[in-house]
């Protein structure tokens, strides 16, 4: 009889479990697409972003420069003016519906906004120049702005590699971890231990099995990105896939390590959340890390998600290939090897 390889059979099994589990399929394929569609539409749909400004009724509207302040603000198409009582305007500000409030007093004008917020700062500068111009300021320089339309430089182009990384992380961590925990709960790991199967083959099968799943996942995101937003990778797709594989291996090994001794799905869920949620926020999936304080940036660059996001972005946006991504590759490989080694030591079969 033809002898089957246990590693191949175990790996085939991983894919089979995925394909036949409708919810796994849904989360892996459709969640990232949904994110991309929603965020892509939210950020690239608008022609011009407008600022919301509050004006409290009953203030002296003309003081002190004899211009009608609310009328001047309304005349700028970039401003949407909200008029109302002090209470109404303050409430709107509290709810985040308006970014800045304009107030007058005998000495002059005041713009009230949160100086730490991007929106407030933006609103304040638009208000200032609108009112200065209305009061008669003439600018010595003429500056016009132009919308960015070249593929590869839009927000969606920045977002898609980030979503790829995020989706690889969540599906590897949650999928693999839960599978191992349920195998342990159902005594299947113990059953495997009673066969001559080599234990490391079971662990490696999770990494290889994930590879098939992530190819489907990556393809779904790239194809949707291309069809909806004309997204194209500047670097080769082979490099993109190869680097994504390094990420899959790193997160699957981390998941195996977390699941090495856990028999309780809730504990497993907690552990994967503790790992993934902070990384999701700090690794620069949604926005550039350029604004982070330096000490945070120092730590963050060694996180696996950061390495994966940066690498994928450099391939997709800058056309880098695997050989120019040494440090990111080394970080991901290190996570893979260290986690697998630790998991092999710690792994409990029941």
């Amino acid at each position: 009889m033809h002898k089957r390889s246990s590693l191949i059979e175990l790996t085939k099994g991983r894919w089979r479990e995925f394909r036949r589990e409708p919810s796994a399929f849904f989360f892996v394929i459709f969640m990232p697409i949904l994110w991309m569609v929603i965020l892509g539409a939210a950020f690239s749909g608008k022609e011009n972003v407008k600022v919301q400004v509050g004006w409290i009724e009953g203030q002296t509207a003309t003081s002190p420069f004899n211009i009608d302040i609310p009328a001047s603000l309304s005349s700028n198409s970039a401003i949407i003016l909200h008029r109302g009582s002090v209470e109404e305007i303050n409430l709107k500000h509290l709810r985040g519906e308006i970014a800045a409030i304009v107030s007058t007093d005998p000495t002059g004008l005041k713009i009230i906004y949160d100086t730490a917020s991007q929106e407030g700062t933006n609103a304040s500068s638009i208000i200032k120049s609108t009112l200065q111009e209305a009061a008669g300021r003439t600018d010595p320089l003429s500056i016009t702005s132009e919308k960015i339309t070249i593929p590869g430089t839009r927000y969606i182009d920045f977002l898609i590699p980030g979503l790829l990384a995020l989706s690889i992380m969540t599906s590897s961590l949650f999928g693999t971890g839960m599978l191992i925990v349920s195998n342990r709960r159902e005594n299947l790991l113990k059953r495997y231990l009673a066969t001559p199967m080599k234990p490391h083959e079971y662990l490696i099968s999770h990494i290889f099995g994930r590879t098939f799943i992530f190819i489907v996942e990556v393809a779904a995101i790239l194809i949707t990105g291309y069809l909806m937003f004309g997204f194209k990778s500047a670097g080769s797709y082979i490099s993109l896939l190869a680097f994504a594989f390094l990420g899959t291996a790193a997160f699957t090994s981390l998941a195996i390590l977390c699941a090495a001794r856990t028999a309780n799905p809730a504990t497993m869920n907690g552990m994967t959340n503790i790992i993934s949620l902070p990384m999701m926020l700090v690794a620069g999936v949604w926005f550039s890390r350029a604004n982070f304080p330096e000490w945070l940036g120092q730590i963050v660059q060694y996180l696996p998600l950061t390495a994966l996001v940066d690498g994928l972005r450099r391939i997709a946006l800058e056309g880098a290939n695997l050989s120019t991504l040494m440090s990111e590759s080394v970080i991901l490989l290190a996570y893979t090897l260290l986690s697998t080694a630790a998991a092999t030591k710690l792994f409990k079969w029941y």
Binding site: R4, E9, L10, G13, R16, R20, E21, L188
Partner: peptide
């Protein structure tokens, strides 16, 4: 023991035979 519930009978035995 519970083996993979979405494997067929044949797939289960093929896995163990490997």
């Amino acid at each position: 023991t519970n083996m993979y519930k979405r494997y067929t009978v044949k797939e289960t035995l093929q896995l163990f035979s490997s």
